[in-house]
């Protein structure tokens, strides 16, 4: 890299209506922190002629996380805002962990959660975590307001279901059911290289019944594999109705990998990637189940449960 940015027009609207008007008039792109957009402009992956900053737009800084009312994060809220929030850690652990593990850590102080989700980069962490938490994007646009579930939000690589001019006002996740736990984990290819992006990431949400000995609901998501993070319903079906134990988690992980397609034609790469996906999914589901069982401590890991099962 090292190339300079090409000149562009820049607007700083004060209201959502003004921002949409500018976007329509100048075919502008919205920018919040710019952590994804600025490097893309520099690499000439994008050649936007007009940027519209949402930094001064009023009403996009909602921030509310509570076990009874769910999670609501406005378009201007940066990822590091979630870190000190106790309910984010306890009740929306997958998203909290994804924000905590952002690399480099400085990004969390600059980039917004919604911006990260909207950039639709296939290997990003927050989309995987938010999909496991059943997130939905609340959108306002020239044709009115609408809600897009994250599952329908990602259309293709770098493409979302947003129409031109639409603004995501906030991300909303439903409050947890009782006895629910979630978890997020990722594997880095290596550390401290320019391609230092995670190889695979996974998130899971598990709900147990009242006695906490059967799984009644589950969401299993794998990211960085294909063009968007995906839910794997075969694995979820394998989990639901059964008692959480090590063998079940292994079987669910196998069910996911059975659906995956290889990304390369190199046998050894695929063997490694599939093995990593199996282990990552197994541990992620185990940790989510462990948290559901213990009503849960965000810093607890699944090690104890795995040891018991062995």
């Amino acid at each position: 890299m090292g190339r300079v940015l090409l000149p562009f027009a820049y607007h700083e609207p004060k209201t959502v209506a003004e921002a949409m008007e500018l976007a329509k008039r100048d075919a502008g792109t919205y920018i919040m922190g710019g952590c994804t957009l600025v490097p893309s402009l520099r690499r000439r992956q994008r050649r936007d002629k007009c940027l519209i900053s949402l930094a001064r737009v009023e009403g996009l800084d909602d921030f509310g996380i509570h076990p009874k009312s769910g999670l609501r994060i406005g378009a201007k809220v940066v990822a590091s805002a979630l870190l000190p929030n106790i309910w984010a850690g306890k009740r929306f652990a997958a998203l909290h962990e994804a924000c905590e593990q952002l690399y480099p850590p400085h990004i969390g102080n600059m980039g917004s959660v919604v911006g990260n989700l909207c950039s639709a980069v296939p290997y990003f962490d927050l989309p995987t975590a938010a999909l496991a938490l059943d997130g939905e994007m609340h959108v306002t646009g020239p044709d009115g307001d609408r809600v897009i579930a994250l599952e329908e939000f990602y259309v293709a690589k770098f493409q979302t279901a947003l129409k031109p001019g639409e603004i995501v006002t906030h991300l909303f996740c439903q409050p947890y059911k009782p006895d629910t736990g979630s978890s997020f984990k990722k594997i880095y290819r290596s550390r401290r290289t320019i391609e230092d992006l995670h190889k695979i990431n996974a998130a899971a949400m598990v709900t147990l019944d009242e006695e906490r000995d059967r799984i009644i609901d589950a969401r299993v998501v794998l990211g960085s594999w294909g063009h968007r993070p995906n839910r794997y319903r075969a694995a979820e079906a394998a989990l639901i109705g059964n008692a959480p134990n090590f063998d079940l988690f292994v079987a669910a992980a196998e069910a996911v990998t059975a659906e995956l397609l290889p990304a390369t034609d190199m046998d050894w790469v695929e063997k490694t990637r599939f093995a990593q996906a199996r282990v990552l999914l197994r541990d992620t589901i185990a940790q989510a189940a462990s948290r559901a069982k213990s009503r849960h401590d965000p810093f607890e890991d699944a090690t104890e449960m795995l040891e018991d099962a062995r």
Binding site: I31, G34, C35, V38, L51, A55, H106, M110
Partner: peptide, 10 residues
């Protein structure tokens, strides 16, 4: 923050 990817206007 990383000043190299932060637009000065922001």
């Amino acid at each position: 923050i990383c000043s190299c990817i932060t637009l000065a206007v922001l």
